[in-house]
Design a protein around this nucleic acid. Structure first.
Length: 445
RNA sequence: CGGGGCGUAGCGCAGUCUGGUAGCGCAUCUGCUUUGGGAGCAGAGGGCCGGGAGUUCGAAUCUCUCCGCCCCGACCA
């Protein structure tokens, strides 16, 4: 993309309403525009990041064997009366009437609807296990939205629902989700720690939240700092292998890690003092096993091998897709702006032409631009007729992980510069070598 | 929902107390000069001062009333 043909409305000054880093940078980098309290337009740059996160979530869900579909944002109230949650949910649920005066709601979650789909079409244990998920906009009418997309009212969320014949099978689904989530967050460059959590309005007795450590987090967290060293890495996971999946979960959930809701000071005391940490975290996902809480009242029954009709065992699992955009920024930025991890960056690299209009500089930039695209990369070429400082500041703000700087000075020696946004380190290379290096960096991503 | 604050140009703000017909910086546009970390000079455009109703000869400014937004708290992915 050429910057002169793009839409990237940068702000030099901090908008007054933004209090935390991610909100400030998202506004300044032209990623979002607020349209009402807790409701945002996603401008092109923000939209790109959102899409990349969404894509990673899709890939990892499908790798785990989960099946995508799409349910609507608006739901009939009657469905929620069946589970009893129409009254339980309270003012946080946005209620709407259509022109026929039918009661509707803008979905805050989809347990009822997915159960309705399930009961209409599945009646035998032979169709299990089944996990369906979607990525859809949700609405929760928070009393006080804040922190930009971190706590908006409208938000994009992946929510998935597993259906299993019994508790053991459903607990495997729970574990499978935990592992797939760990891999999802790692691909985004995040360390998200699974912590034993309280269940809230979803219900259920088994639940973990995934927390990204950040000072601006909404939850106080207590943990053994050795959990932050755990990595899934490149290991092969067979998501159907109950033993292997359970082992991975054990590995990640044995060390002490809890939010204030479930914190147990006596247990925490047993963590060696040198490893004991208290901090704050941003919740970026949660998984639940809740058994037959919805299937029983809503009549989601299957016939088991013994010929009996039994309520299906369920769990649900969510990843806050739009919230992750903010969380990643909270976890990865400096005073100049955002520092995108390679996995979610809106563009793979910036090309900064220091002397727009200079024949040699223009030609070198065009070569690099075409070369990167030929390698399947998506560069942002700053082809504005602007000064060096302005271009550097803009690219630092929007946080692309790599920058190729092209100017007459370097070109006299046949070199351009490749700079890491994260470390600031610069390497002088020929244009061809710079293209190769970036292709290597992104190989397999 | 309790407490506090704010709404004036695209963004950040002054002007409001003490009424006299709107200003600064950045951004934008034009020209010239500059050109490796947010340039300089000269000029230009852009506002029903959140909406409505009052008071007044006269309202951004005073009064009433809506609306919107932000912060702290309680709540929440």
């Amino acid at each position: 993309m050429r910057l002169t043909r793009y839409f990237l409305p940068l702000l030099k000054e901090n908008p007054a309403e933004a209090q935390i880093v991610s909100h400030r940078f998202m506004l300044r980098a032209g990623m979002i525009k607020q349209q009402a309290a807790g409701i945002y337009s996603w401008l092109p740059l923000g939209w790109r990041v959102l899409r990349r996160i969404e894509q990673i979530v899709h890939e990892e869900q499908q790798r785990a064997g989960h099946i995508p579909l799409l349910m609507p944002t608006l739901q009939p109230a009657d469905l929620w009366r069946e589970s009893g949650r129409y009254d339980d949910y309270g003012q946080e649920m946005l209620r709407i009437r259509d022109r026929q005066d039918r009661e509707m709601l803008y979905g805050p979650t989809n347990e009822e609807m997915i159960t309705d789909i399930f009961r209409a079409h599945v009646s035998s244990y032979k169709d299990l296990p089944l996990t369906l998920y979607h990525i859809q906009w949700k609405f929760r009418d928070e009393m006080r939205p804040r922190f930009g997309v971190m706590r908006g009212r409208e938000f994009l969320m992946k929510d998935g629902y597993n259906f299993d014949i019994d508790r053991d099978a459903a607990l495997h689904a729970y574990n499978r989700h935990m592992v797939s989530y760990l891999r999802t967050y790692e691909r985004m460059g995040l360390t998200a720690i699974p912590m034993r959590a309280a269940s809230g309005p979803i219900g259920g007795d088994n639940t973990h939240e995934f927390l990204v450590l950040a000072q601006t987090g909404e939850s106080e967290v207590f943990y053994d700092d050795r959990v932050t060293q755990l990595k899934l890495g490149a290991r092969e996971i067979d998501y159907d292998d109950r033993t292997q999946v359970a082992k991975v979960c054990e590995e990640f959930t044995t060390l002490y890690a809890r939010t204030d809701e479930t914190h147990d000071p006596a247990l925490f005391e047993q963590v060696p003092e040198a490893h004991r940490r208290v901090g704050r975290g941003i919740e970026v996902g949660q998984i639940f096993y809740f058994g037959t809480k919805y299937s029983e009242p809503m009549g989601a029954l299957v016939t088991n091998a013994e010929g009996q009709r039994v309520p299906v065992h369920m769990g649900s699992h969510g990843i806050g897709v739009s919230r992750l955009v903010g969380a990643i920024i909270e976890a990865s930025h400096d005073e100049k702006g955002i520092v995108w991890p390679e996995g979610v960056t809106p563009f793979h690299a910036a090309i900064v032409n220091l002397r727009q209009g200079d024949a040699a500089s223009d030609a070198a930039c065009e070569t690099i631009y075409a070369g990167l695209r030929a390698r399947g990369l998506d560069p942002l070429y700053d082809d504005r007729d602007a000064r060096a400082g302005e271009k550097f500041a803009a690219m630092d703000l929007i946080g692309l992980p790599w920058r190729i700087t092209v100017g007459p000075r370097g070109l006299a020696a046949g070199k351009v510069e490749l700079t890491s946004r994260r470390s600031g380190e610069t390497e002088e290379l020929s244009p061809e070598a710079a293209i190769d290096r970036l292709a290597q960096i992104y190989a397999g991503r």
